[in-house]
Design a protein around this nucleic acid. Structure first.
Length: 258
DNA sequence: ATGTCACTTTACAAGTGA
């Protein structure tokens, strides 16, 4: 499972309910917005989950919550542009590598943050060229802040060329996948629009179906051949589900054969 | 496109980032 929680402090009751509901083996979290010293390890441990975290107070932050105790492989992204931000965490269980990824949003095409985003993807891809072995099982899951193609936006004409849908960022995501990664969500869904994972809080975007598919699980072929299905838990985006307010992202759940 | 949310701070409102 991968889920951008938009503050783990705010979303903890929902995360705990989500663990009870889906019983996932491994959960990649993004935008935890919490320092490692404040990470809520105990309520997770009570449910049989251990956690690795790479956070900072107030913004960004990634974590991997799992039933198997995972071995930490890497914290952070070597060569990523300053300022240092908590966006990558890599861990291993058995022969499976898992990376929790939170890409830079980029704000708008032309904004300095957009250039930083492209630079950050170059650093991610440079790391991935050394870390992704298509012969070995590996999953990169998280909020990539890029729609892979026009099927991943609710209104391609509206979004054409804009941040989250522009060609330079799509080219970089494509270069990452060309290292031998399968977009598991797209493979499971087939040639349809969506399934969306993010809806802006504003303007009633969820209610109006104004969604994007920017949360992705990318797997090497040994993972992809074990793919059973993929589900987006849209209930988690509704204010009525679980405890407290929703994140602006819904969890993406990938089901793999043992 | 924008009917919001969560964070931070010479904190009880306003700016930032998403």
């Amino acid at each position: 499972m991968t889920w951008n929680v938009n503050s783990l402090r705010q979303r903890l009751p929902r995360l705990l309910a989500l663990l009870d509901r889906h019983e996932p083996d491994i959960v990649c979290l993004q935008e935890t917005k919490i320092a490692d010293s404040d990470f809520p390890s105990e309520p997770l441990a009570d449910r049989g989950y251990s956690a690795l975290c790479h956070g900072q107070p107030g913004r960004n932050g990634v974590a991997i919550v799992s039933r198997p105790v995972m071995e930490e492989v890497r914290i952070g992204l070597p060569g990523s542009p300053p300022p240092e931000s908590a966006r990558v965490l890599v861990a291993r269980t058995g022969d499976v590598m898992v990376a929790s990824i939170y890409a830079i949003n980029g704000k708008e095409v032309g904004d300095p943050a957009y250039d930083l985003k492209l630079e950050w993807f170059d650093a991610l891809n440079a790391w991935a060229r050394t870390a992704v072995d298509p012969a070995r099982p590996m999953v990169l899951a998280g909020d990539f802040n890029v729609t892979p193609d026009d099927r991943d936006v609710h209104d391609p004409d509206l979004w054409r060329g804009r941040n989250l849908a522009s060609q330079p960022e799509r080219d970089r995501l494509r270069a990452l996948m060309d290292l031998g990664l399968v977009d598991l969500g797209r493979r499971a869904a087939g040639d349809v629009r969506g399934p969306f994972t993010f809806w802006d809080y504003r303007a009633g975007a969820f209610h109006r179906g104004w969604g994007l598919r920017i949360d992705l699980a990318l797997g090497t072929p040994p993972i992809a051949e074990r793919l059973i299905g993929v589900e987006v838990d849209r209930e988690e985006r509704k204010p009525t589900a679980g405890e407290g307010k929703p994140s602006d992202h819904a969890p993406l759940i990938v089901d793999l054969r043992d």
